[in-house]
Design a protein around this nucleic acid. Structure first.
Length: 110
DNA sequence: GACATGACGGCAC
DNA sequence: AGTGCCGCCATGT
């Protein structure tokens, strides 16, 4: 019970801390939870996420690719939201991680 | 209970 | 810099 459901809750808690205009990789979220090997489970947790207060569109993979765009209502929803928050994309349609990747200590509660 | 899959990541080539 | 392969772990069949 607390294994997966609790994990998912922790994931949502971390994702909620991602500032507008910034993004985080799945691995970074997992790292913030002290589980560097559970990046895939982060994705799965977001897949089952139904809470609107969780900015799951700010979570991308380590390459800045919107691998989970298909999980949104429309394939372009994630990109549109990020664009409206000021996130810049490169010519290959990837997020500029050097500029928009949030730092790990921004996700962990000090 | 074993096998295949996946919103991933790191490392080798 | 891009591509490929393997490792991790929970789920579904």
């Amino acid at each position: 019970m607390t294994s997966t459901a609790g994990f998912a809750r922790s994931v949502y808690d971390v994702v909620r801390r991602i500032p507008s205009g910034m993004v985080a990789s799945y691995g970074l979220v997992a790292l913030a939870l002290d589980r560097p090997r559970d990046a895939r489970q982060v994705g799965r947790a977001l897949f089952v996420c139904r809470e609107a207060d969780v900015p799951c569109h700010r979570v991308v993979n380590r390459n800045g690719v919107l691998t989970g765009a298909w999980a949104f209502e429309t394939p372009t929803e994630q990109r549109e939201k990020l664009l409206s928050e000021g996130v810049a994309f490169d010519l290959q349609g990837r997020v500029d991680m050097a500029l928009h990747c949030v730092r790990a200590d921004e996700l962990t509660d000090p």
